[in-house]
Design a protein around this nucleic acid. Sequence first.
DNA 1: CGGACAACCTGGTTGC
DNA 2: TGCAACCAGGTTGTCC
Length: 291
Amino acid sequence: MPELPEVETVRLTLTPQLLGRTVRAVSVLHPDVVAGPGVTPETFRERLTGATFTALRRRGKYLVMTLRAPEGPVRMILHLRMTGRLTVVDPREEVPKHTHLRFALDDGRELRFTDPRRFGRAHLLCGAAVSAADGGPKGLGTLGPEPLGRGFGKKELGERLAGRKARLKTLLLDQTIVAGVGNIYADETLFRAGLHPARRACDLDDADVGRLCRSLRSVLRQAIGQGGTTIRDYVDGRGRRGEFVLSLRVYGREGEPCVECGGPVERAVVAGRSTHFCPRCQPLKAPDGAL
DNA sequence: CGGACAACCTGGTTGC
DNA sequence: TGCAACCAGGTTGTCC
């Protein structure tokens, strides 16, 4: 599923293929996937036709594309949700089922957005709305800090978790605490930090927060280095699968031996999500004999 | 604030 | 072989 490392990989692989390219034609094959103030499939097509890609950025799980058009700047904000794919291909390639957007580019190639479950959205902002602070999809405005950002560290994470009674899994999935973490990287982070997913944030000591922060950042960085995680649907902007799936230590490994202690990895529902962990390496309570 | 749950969707898997 | 039930999970919204 596209989480921060997958969206970052899509951004990295699309950037050289899109920067400086001009959109020659746009097809909206399903009206539900376009969104934004007053945006219809017709205005979406009109505003993007003739526009040139000038920047691709990422914020949390959102991909933010800025374009320059004769009528002024345009911003397209995409969220892939669960099964969204964004790829640049040869237009002669067969158009897959559930392709909702097609952008013909001036170099003869084509940007496609494909999403079987149709949860993903392409949000369009034009003119003054591009620079407005409150523009774009709701979730974008309330995002917490970027976990790989320069200012982010143990101190900031600790402040955001301070006094919270909710479970760690819940808070890692909360995009207003920290941006970009989903089910896979929440589980992988907690395993590497040796913290049980159902632990209450307010119970953590200083060292726990430090390990949580370091684990979060190292897991995300390593996953970006391996092109993200492909369980089933995810591919990058060139159609390649993510290799971090080979580095997963608990996600999807229910019943298999823990890579640290050899005990079986367990699965439980925490925060309404399938949650994978090693009960021995991630104890909920301190072992007997500890102070 | 915290937690539970439904809704949005389709495809894949499981169980009978 | 067929078919129904269930599950996957990011986000929003509702309710207690």
